[in-house]
């Protein structure tokens, strides 16, 4: 495939932050990620201190811990919503679209995930896996869904007066079991980060090596190449409304950029 290496003028495009490096997460995405990480840590810790008897014995101060847990929980969506709400959230909005949309490649990757390393390698290289794999997409969707359910059940536990008492018991049931499952999923996420240091560094400093991207996310590299081609075209003159002769179909790729 021609797109496995950025050629000529494309190499100079803004997406590359240096020789052989690509920006994976911009500053806004990184700040939101680490803010969420801290908020989640506080929620897990205060939640455990409300729920797990040995920790209750150690921490006590139930009403204070409750207040912290409640208000941090209510605040949790704020950083993400703030980041999404302005011009600064362009990269984040784009990545959320990437998380949302599943291609046939993602479905194949997911099936291959249960069939060993060589099958996974085959899928990601030959089927040109995008910026995020299906595992990362599931993790992202689960995290959003679980956070919303925790927010809903948690609010119901606090403001239960208008509702039947059985809803409160039901909310306790959902909140407790999902919290347990959520902690396991977060632990898995942290484990994956620690065992993939290059990826973890990209969440700390933003960039990842071009070699990594070619190897793990060739479809993402394809996207960047197409964008750069568009950007180059825009720089070199007004975009023709009618496709020009030699590269006549380029205008149609604008829908991707």
């Amino acid at each position: 495939m021609a797109t496995t290496a950025l050629g000529g003028d494309a190499r100079s495009a803004a997406r590359e932050t240096g020789a052989g490096w690509i920006l994976r997460f911009d500053a806004v995405e990184r700040v939101v990620h680490w803010t969420n990480a801290v908020l989640f840590a506080v929620l897990v810790f205060t939640g455990a201190a409300l729920y797990f008897s040995p920790l209750i014995a150690l921490i006590g101060r139930r009403s204070l811990v409750e207040e912290i847990h409640l208000y941090i929980g209510l605040f949790l969506p704020v950083p993400l919503l703030l980041a999404l709400s302005g011009r600064w959230g362009r990269a984040l909005r784009r990545d959320l679209r990437r998380f949302n949309r599943w291609s046939e490649t993602d479905r194949r990757w997911l099936r291959s995930a249960f069939r060993g390393q060589s099958e996974r390698d085959y899928v990601r290289r030959r089927l040109s896996l995008g910026k995020f794999n299906a595992g990362q997409k599931i993790n992202a969707a689960f995290t959003v869904g679980a956070a919303l359910v925790m927010l809903g059940t948690g609010s119901l536990l606090r403001w239960y007066r208008p509702f039947p008492l059985s809803w409160r018991a039901g909310s306790t049931f959902v909140h407790n079991w999902l919290a347990l499952f959520f902690v396991i999923v977060i632990a898995g996420h942290v484990l994956m980060a620690l065992t993939h240091p290059a990826v973890l560094r990209s969440m700390l400093f933003g960039r990842i090596s071009r070699r990594w991207a070619d190897d793990h996310a060739p479809g993402w590299v394809d996207e960047l190449v197409l964008e750069e081609a568009d950007a180059t075209e825009e720089r070199s003159g007004p975009k023709p409304t009618v496709p020009a002769a030699p590269r006549g179909t380029d205008a149609e790729t604008g829908g991707l950029a």
Partner: peptide, 21 residues
């Protein structure tokens, strides 16, 4: 698919509130 997963979880969560007891 991401949106479907989120909506599905909200649905299961609502069922859990109603019948979790």
């Amino acid at each position: 698919v991401g949106r479907r997963v989120v909506l599905g979880m909200l649905g299961v969560g609502a069922l859990g509130i109603a019948f979790g007891e």
